[in-house]
Design a protein around this nucleic acid. Structure first.
Length: 570
RNA sequence: AGCGGGGUGGGGUAGCCAGGAUUAACCCGCUGGGCUCAUAACCCAGAGAUCAGUAGUUCAAAUCUACUCCCCGCUACCA
């Protein structure tokens, strides 16, 4: 059997979380979680899948946060990386490699690749003027400078934009500028930086984006527009101590811009994984084999880094890398109408969420509300609705009424059906159609629809049982009742497989209740449509979900309390 | 300001890029009915939307075009 089917290569990646803080649900939904759902789906399809990502840990905001806490940047990111990696495990994110930008493999790969691009003549250096804080001995990115807006007089305008009047600013125009870190007035200082000349890739990038059939509309339009407006050279170096040293001649003391290294991390993480499993050359299958699929899950704020910067870097190596096959870009998950903000306590963080409800509840909910075409809004009311009505009442109840019926009336054995009627066949057909629908949705990264389709399988089951009333038939026509439950049991099995990408532990629990061999996660998608054998004994069913009995107000209070105790421990 | 995305029954969403094979779909809620196997869960029927507005293209527009209003994001050194 082995080797009979050529497996598809699928590299699934997620934008690298920037770990100055723990991610919130909005960070998770479009990137890491979506990537995991997709990866789990492709594994079930039988593809050779690699899910990689890592912590993005360099740059000014990390340095500043470390300074605030009185520790070194490395101490900060060691701690946060460990914490975030643990949390992703609890969220059941099935990374093959969750690495970090401090990884030696990554550092070496970034430096080598940039030197390659440099030797190919796409990188030049140029002097520029930047604000410098003498007190902190640090160059200040625009957003680390505040001052009075020259247009509206707002006292806390940032160096790049005034939040009050919305105007874009030249940092040097700020009245009474001050360093956000220490409050002193910054000076203007000349410095040299290295730039990649993106404009030289305008044509290949345009062709690539136009011809990419998978790319969602938001990513496509945004990217084409960027190119149309004219690609400008982009600095690949920063005057920051905490980062990967720039390898260019004369660039001593400079580090690589975090986004440039983060996107190259997709490659380095693949290399690192393949070395670890003892197949150091295997990474090329994912990055150069033209039949391989590379799938990126990102939030809309970093579309250009994946549709323009990364492809440009890959093209600039001259090595025929695979460019992103799809960049699934989500809009934002808002919280009660506002953007998540740690300081204003708006939002829910991924550590807190798990203290309140099981990971699978969140996973399902987040996919069901995944902001695929527009921003969506988190509210407890909607969360409760999804968990109670969809998971518990529709899906969970169907599974439970079916299995417990088999437990009590058929001695926990899959009953022997008679010849199935056309109505029975129609229901089975309907479930097969749902499974096919799921395949289309997962293939197109339409994960929100997939969550709905999964629930609709429960609806089909509930309708079927209500219509056939096996609880009455069992009194008059035991054999007919047996047929009904046989069919219902097949639907349950299909649900067990189909729910695996979205709710891995619930799916596994169901798989074990059905007493099927091994794990649902090592089985195959086709199992969804393979019937349970007659006489097969199942375990005693227990409800898979519990209804949420509290209300919005109580949940908010619980969260606030939780937050206070967690802060104390931190 | 420029650019991108969005505005769809009371609430939440899909459909729009490739206009019509639908009476504008789905979930929640609401009204009425049914069922009692199941976690007071389930099922059926019904009310409720001229798809932000205006003008246009077309035999045909939620879908394409133009303009207007409102919300979100980005604007290249925040990451």
């Amino acid at each position: 059997m082995e080797g009979a089917v050529k497996l598809g290569k699928v590299l699934v990646t997620s934008a690298w979380p920037y770990i100055n803080v723990i991610p919130h649900l909005g960070n998770l939904v479009g990137s890491v979680l979506s990537a995991d759902v997709a990866a789990r789906y492709y594994r079930l399809r039988g593809d050779d899948v690699l899910l990689v990502s890592g912590s993005d840990e360099h740059g000014t905001p990390i340095e500043v946060e470390a300074l605030r806490q009185g520790i070194t940047p490395k101490e900060l990111t060691d701690r946060n990386h460990t914490r975030v990696a643990e949390l992703f495990k609890k969220w059941a994110i099935s990374f093959d490699n969750y690495t970090r930008t401090e990884s030696p493999v990554h550092r070496e790969f970034v430096q080598e690749t940039l030197m390659k691009i440099y030797r190919n003549g796409y990188i030049f250096s140029q002097e520029t003027q930047m604000l410098y804080c003498e007190n902190d001995q640090r160059f200040l990115p625009d957003r680390f400078v505040e001052g009075k807006c020259p247009y509206c007089g707002y006292e806390r305008a940032r160096g790049d934009q005034c939040d009050m009047c919305g105007r874009l600013l030249e940092t040097t125009l700020l009245i009474e500028p001050r360093c956000v870190i220490c409050g002193n007035s910054p000076a203007i200082k000349t410095t040299r930086h290295w730039y990649i000349d993106l404009s030289r890739f305008a044509e290949p990038l345009t062709n690539y984006i136009k011809n990419n059939q998978q790319l969602p509309l938001n990513a496509k339009n945004f990217s084409l527009n960027w190119i149309k407006e004219g690609l400008k050279p982009r600095a690949v170096t920063r005057d920051v101590a905490w980062g990967i040293p720039a390898p260019f001649p004369g660039a001593e003391g400079k580090t690589i811009y975090v986004w440039v290294e983060a996107v190259l991390g997709y490659v380095s993480a693949t290399i690192e994984y393949c070395r670890r499993i003892g197949k150091p050359e295997k990474w090329r299958e994912f990055w150069f084999d033209k039949s391989a699929i590379t799938l990126y899950f990102v939030g809309k704020d970093n579309i250009p880094f994946h549709t323009i910067i990364l492809p440009a870097l890959l093209l600039a190596t001259g090595e025929d890398y695979n460019l992103p096959w799809n960049v699934s870009a989500t809009e934002f998950l808002q919280f009660k109408g506002a953007k998540a903000s740690k300081s204003q306590r708006i939002g829910i963080w991924i550590d807190e969420a798990l203290e309140l409800f099981p990971a699978d509840y969140w996973r399902f909910f987040l996919m069901a509300t995944r902001p695929e075409t527009k921003d969506t809004n988190f509210s407890w009311a909607f969360f409760i609705e999804k968990i109670n009505a969809d998971l518990n009442d529709t899906l969970g109840n169907f599974i439970h009424r079916t299995l417990s019926f088999i437990n009590t009336r058929f001695n926990s054995e899959i009953p022997q059906p008679q010849k199935l009627t056309s109505e029975d066949e129609a229901v089975i057909q309907s479930i097969q159609d749902k499974v096919k629908e799921l395949i289309h949705e997962f293939d197109a990264a339409r994960l929100q629809s997939a969550a709905n389709t999964l629930i609709s399988m429960g609806r089909v089951g509930n309708q079927y049982l209500n219509e056939k009333e096996p609880w009455n038939l069992i009194k008059s026509d035991q054999e007919r009742a047996a047929s009904i439950l046989y069919v219902a049991a097949q639907i349950v099995k299909a649900i067990a497989v189909a729910s695996a990408p979205l709710m891995p532990s619930i799916a596994e629990q169901l798989w074990q209740t059905l007493k099927l061999p091994g794990s649902v996660h090592t089985s195959k998608w086709d199992e969804a449509l393979t019937p349970l054998t007659v006489g097969h004994k199942i375990a005693k069913a227990a409800p898979l979900f519990r209804k949420i009995e509290t209300d919005e107000k109580k949940l908010d209070e619980t969260l606030t309390k939780l937050r206070d105790t967690m802060t104390k421990h931190a």
